[in-house]
């Protein structure tokens, strides 16, 4: 059972505040691009190149904003990339501290079992497809739930509100179609 929303919301808010107080607002989805770049650059070392002014890339997206992403690909031990690795470690430690997830839950989340039964192949294919659409959309939007919705709306940025409107406009009908019947039965 998750933490009471008052305590959970307070803790989550404190983390977002600590990030902006000490460094900068939290964001995650860019790091998928950085990892793609690291993999791409390992396969093809021509992808990211060091120039006199900094870094550039044969990929226009990595090269944009004066090679900001190309620089991160060439130097993976940067704040934002390490941040995501630390998130994984933190989540792992937290799950282990509360006894770990059961084998059944690791295989399929409860909500899926309630609505669709024991159908892991269907679930994994949908998770893959969902991941593709989520990251394509996040990069098009320039941020995800963390960067646009949480950090963005917290800073009263217009883009955060535009993003949240789009995200919920699509997410709510899709989820209702998928789960509402099973959850309310």
């Amino acid at each position: 059972m998750p933490l009471n929303w008052k305590l959970g919301g307070l803790l989550l808010g404190l983390v977002f505040f600590a990030a902006v107080l000490l460094v900068k607002p939290i964001g995650v989805s860019t790091q998928f691009v950085i990892l793609d770049g690291i993999i791409g650059n390992a396969v093809n070392p021509e992808l990211v190149t060091q120039t006199e002014e900094g870094y550039s890339s044969t990929n226009a997206y990595l090269a944009k904003s004066d090679g900001k992403y190309a620089r991160a690909v060439a130097n993976p031990l940067n704040y934002s990339f390490v941040f995501v690795l630390a998130m994984m470690a933190g989540a792992f430690a937290s799950v282990m501290a509360r006894g770990g997830l059961g084998a059944e839950e690791r295989r399929l989340p409860e909500i899926w079992r309630r609505s669709f039964g024991d159908t892991p192949v269907k679930r994994y294919m949908l998770a893959f497809l969902g991941g593709f659409v989520v990251l394509y959309g996040a990069r098009l939007a320039g941020g995800c739930t963390s960067g646009h919705m949480m950090s963005g709306m917290m800073q009263t940025s217009l883009s955060g509100y535009i993003f949240a409107a789009g995200a919920f406009a699509a997410a709510v009908p899709v989820s209702i179609l998928m789960y509402r019947k099973g959850e309310l039965s």
């Binding site: 659409v133 394509y136 939007a141 699509a170 998928m178």
Partner: peptide, 12 residues
Amino acid sequence: GGLMLGAGWALA
């Protein structure tokens, strides 16, 4: 992009 992320968020 928000619409896309939302759809994928719900699917996954």
